[in-house]
Design a protein around this nucleic acid. Structure first.
Lengths: 236, 236
DNA sequence: TCAAAAGTGTTATGAGTACACCCATGG
DNA sequence: CCATGGGTGTACTCATAACACTTTTGA
């Protein structure tokens, strides 16, 4: 077979925007870059694609290597290819975003890679075009979560409605009416009320809920309307 | 500056899924591949990225080269990176989809590149993973057009409501009530009724409409609800 | 006993849908 | 004059949004 002789070959990287929610704020996980150029600066988790892996696998491998996490929600975001995005050598990057339960991660080794959680509203200066990637990921997360039930991926197995609401409110940067929110969530039938309560954040305590796994799996791509229309139509 | 010595460099291509609407059917533009391997088979428009262009520019360049078209609606779809997608040599491809006014294209040279329009429901066997790309593009087009006013890009400057409705119906593979459709479209205030009629497809004739360019530009990213909810919630 | 958060019900408005008839015209 | 496709109005239903009070309990 003939080869594509004259063509230009390029380095291909995968970068991951990893979202977590600590109960109050949406955060992303950053590391100190351990490679020149820009060594020591804050960066997304990333790495080069190897010879025999596709992007999904590459992203999963990098996530595993740098955080120890496997099997988390991950989705391709966008391919970034500005010729000068890496001043060292032309490199294109396929960005992914991942949603993880931040507490599950805290049990794992965080310090090994100098990884640190930053609130999305206080992201430090990042290397290359990573700031741009983060902005795009936030936008996508808002967009997607307005129609699909993906935010549960950010919560632990058991969570309360006030926690869930506060997550939505954080992402849409607004406040919802808790009666309407509760009714809408309940009407999806995705949640199963538990008998125990979370008493950490109030005296009365809030009931825990778990996902109904069967229904959740069947509805991952379904359309829901959790977000009030004025928010969608005016702010999104 | 140090180089990324040990890393693997890959060919990077851009492929374009070009949609057109002939008044009856949604179609895509294909060419006979003029490069080994798989020379002579039907293929999307594509080409390798050059040293100094980003993906958007590469996509625009390829579109221009192969169709003569410029300034059309174009959006990044997805990056495809399976290691074996091109049997000749590993090549990744960043796919774009474009929406064009099919009649405007017909004036241009179509035969030069052995390009041909195929109804999306009768796509021939395509090279590599292009069939997959087309499927993804169709899905994205349905998804995006359900919420955003992008389908106007497929129509000529002047068009009628029945034409517009038939376009939506083709994409969602269903039929809408024309009274409701008309009311919803009118309520967006994106259209300006003209005084002349299209008398090609009926004796009475249907009024032409044009886009209100100011409003259209301001609403490209706005949410509209043209599509009946049952269609969105059950079929999308 | 009181402060702080959780939980719950009702009403009004408007968007969405279903539905049927008249209009204009070319042949 | 009639067949064909274009254009329009209404009534009903249901989803959404706005809104306030009671409950629980730890301090």
């Amino acid at each position: 077979m003939p080869k594509y002789q004259k063509q230009f070959r390029i380095l291909v990287a995968v970068d991951c925007i990893i979202f977590g929610f600590d109960g109050t704020e949406l955060k992303i996980l950053l590391i100190k870059r351990d490679l020149e150029p820009e060594k020591g600066k804050w960066s997304l988790m990333g790495g080069f694609i190897t010879e025999k892996e596709n992007f999904d696998r590459g992203g999963a491998r990098i996530l595993k290597q740098l955080t120890g996490l496997e099997g988390v929600y991950m989705e391709q975001l966008h391919a970034f290819g500005h010729p000068d995005r890496d001043p060292n050598e032309r490199t294109i990057s396929v960005a992914y975003f991942a949603l993880i339960d931040i507490h599950q991660y805290e049990n794992q080794l965080s310090s090994d890679y100098h990884a640190e959680w930053f609130p999305v509203k206080k992201i430090p200066k990042l290397v290359f075009d990573h700031t741009n990637m983060v902005a795009k990921a936030r936008e996508r997360l808002r967009y997607k979560s307005a129609f699909h039930p993906i935010l549960f991926e950010l919560l632990p197995e058991k969570f309360t409605l006030p926690q869930l609401q506060s997550l939505y409110e954080g992402i849409f940067d607004t406040e919802f009416d808790k009666r309407n929110f509760s009714r809408k969530i309940q009407s999806t039938k995705l949640l199963v009320k538990q008998k125990d309560k979370d008493k950490e954040s109030s005296k009365k305590g809030a009931y825990y809920y778990k996902l109904d796994k069967r229904r959740y799996a069947a509805n991952l791509h379904a359309f829901l309307n959790i977000i009030p229309n004025p928010v969608i139509f005016n702010r999104l």
